[in-house]
Nucleic acid binder design. Structure first.
Lengths: 346, 346
DNA sequence: CTGAAAGCGCTAACAA
DNA sequence: TTGTTAGCGCTTTCAG
């Protein structure tokens, strides 16, 4: 199963390691090399090109650590995913992964590097400070507030260059970009009721405040209407989810006619379990997801869901962060969720 | 749609920024503070604790840039995804994202930070050197060889601390961890034939060598048998995929009775399209995916697929890298693919 | 056990 | 147009 081929790493490393080395063989000072490589117009065009050629030839690139130390500008943005309430220590949520992909694009495009951290707040209380005050990054993006809202507030009070993805609460300190989760939850429940549902179920773990808000929204929708809503907790995205779901749905079989899922992933699993149990979607049970991942359109039947504009979210986050780093003011962005009508609702 | 609340960043930053600052208020030298904070037994227990308390109180953490420059050890591993043949400049492939998640776990666990880069080799020929010789990282992981096999070979010749995920070719220089793609492709086609299929189709873009090997494997399987295989190119994971697939499958409708998909994602899209076109799976068309993402078990019917052990892959990659950094020898790991029998085959 | 001093490799005044 | 100089903040001999 495992192959062999030992590989030794015995190759002579290039001898040219510093600006001074290049300078020596070019007959100029390190300072000039620095300027030349930076493309400074201060240095004579001819020597500049000569030096650049030399650098290319020797495959030389200035040491970033030294440069960053000197300029006090790292060009690195920290991206951290707090795994506050998900006990599985694994970054697996496809929503976060998708957002991460877009963030990588945006940051790369603007010339930043991206330093990714996975944080387990329960094990490491200073998970955020460790990143903000390490001198390693120019700014920090927190993907998902999880149950760490207060911690983020506290750190943001002394560290301006921080933007989080998540839910906005009036008066909060830390800059946030996200969807109006409560409106999304309400929208989902309303759509279900409009489709004739009366006995709703909300599927998802509400330890993270984003999800809690979605549940609140769903409750808003049934208030004063001839409908009920029961909250059935279940994890968001790990291997235990499907089993939990199967249990929950079996135990409550027949007592509901519609599901508000906290995420598309939960919705997909629920669809599968319902199918196993012989239910028809949407005739026996209607279902609405949340996120509108590309996958949502792939299910059978295609999943009706509440869309979050992930690409725009990433764009806004990076724009805010860049503004903050440049000393300009930034602003919260609360995006309206959008109902994507597909075929799991009546 | 967009909210308001301008946020200004006007908070007085802590005044204690260097070891010397701490030293001054503790009445010791910077050197001692450095030792104390590093937990060195050289410094008297009492002063050590006192200094640590002081640091905590002032929320001080040593500047990593300076530390790394001095020690010439960054504690950072670069992870790069070359988007060689996928023209969409977006990291979206869920397989890579899953691998990335596991890598993040492994690296965090071993105390490394992870610097993520997305590279577009066509636009940036020196995408790899830029990372290896920037002085920013202790090692580099390349996720997927794409069409950059030769480039990786060339760089690895002078840079030992590099491990790639991908396909192994006898005699190659760069250390690789991956699945035996050819065996996987063969396995898939054989299973289909065993299920009664005779007119196979391979769905996927073979610019990346991993995929090309899967196709070769499938060809191996039909060789000398009463079966045919046609290659229908299609992108691996972007928005155009579904449209392409629809075209391809319509144009060839009726001329095939089984599909070898280059990835689970392609398989899922194909299932959807076939379903639209009124085909039944697996009775009219059998289909096998590749990867065994968690999603594969969620489709309806659940997808038969060729499993790659992503978690183990991540583990082996990091183990190899750590060995290399420590100056020990590393070795290629070629994992056997595993057929996951589900319900899209007969 | 602690302090002084010498850099890690680079950049940016300041001079020339 | 280029060289010189003085650090960025930390670690680590070397002395004491």
């Amino acid at each position: 199963m495992t192959s062999d081929n030992d590989i030794s790493g015995d190759v002579a490393p290039p001898q040219v390691r510093t600006l001074a080395d290049i300078g020596r063989i070019a007959g100029v000072s390190a300072g000039t090399v620095s300027r030349a490589l930076a493309g400074s117009p201060l240095v004579k065009a001819k020597t500049r090109e000569q030096i650049q050629a030399l650098a290319r030839e020797h495959d030389f690139r200035p040491n970033q650590m030294a440069s960053k130390l000197r300029t006090r500008r790292t060009g690195v943005i920290g991206v951290v995913i707090p795994l506050g309430h998900e006990r599985r220590q694994h970054i697996s949520d496809p929503f976060f992964m998708t957002l991460l992909g877009y963030l990588a694009d945006e940051l790369t495009e603007r010339g930043y590097d991206l330093m990714l951290s996975r944080a387990i707040p329960d094990d490491t209380p200073d998970w955020l400070e460790r990143i903000t005050s390490s001198g390693m990054v120019d700014g920090v993006i927190v993907i998902g507030q999880s149950d760490q809202y207060d911690k983020i507030e506290r750190v943001a009070a002394n560290y301006p260059n921080l933007v989080a993805w998540g839910t906005y609460r009036p008066g909060q300190i830390h800059c946030v970009v996200g969807t109006d989760n409560r409106a999304g939850g309400r929208m989902a429940a309303e759509r279900l009721i409009a489709g004739g549902a009366r006995k709703l179920v909300f599927l998802g773990d509400t330890t993270g405040i984003e999800i809690a808000e979605r549940l609140d929204g769903a409750r808003d929708a049934i208030a004063g209407r001839d409908a009920t809503l029961v909250h059935l907790p279940c994890h968001l995205s790990n291997e235990t989810m499907e089993g939990e779901l199967r249990e929950q749905l079996r135990a409550n079989a027949g007592s509901f006619d519609a599901i508000v899922a906290a995420s598309d992933l939960i919705a997909m699993s629920a669809m599968k379990v319902l199918h196993e149990q012989g239910m028809t979607i949407p005739d026996d049970v209607q279902i609405i997801g949340f996120d509108d991942l590309p996958l949502a359109a792939q299910t059978m039947p295609p999943l009706t869901t509440i869309r979050q504009d992930i690409a725009r979210g990433a764009h806004e986050i990076v724009a805010d962060l860049e503004a903050s780093i440049a000393g300009r003011s930034k602003q919260h962005v609360v995006m309206e969720p959008i109902l994507m009508e597909r075929q799991t609702t009546l």
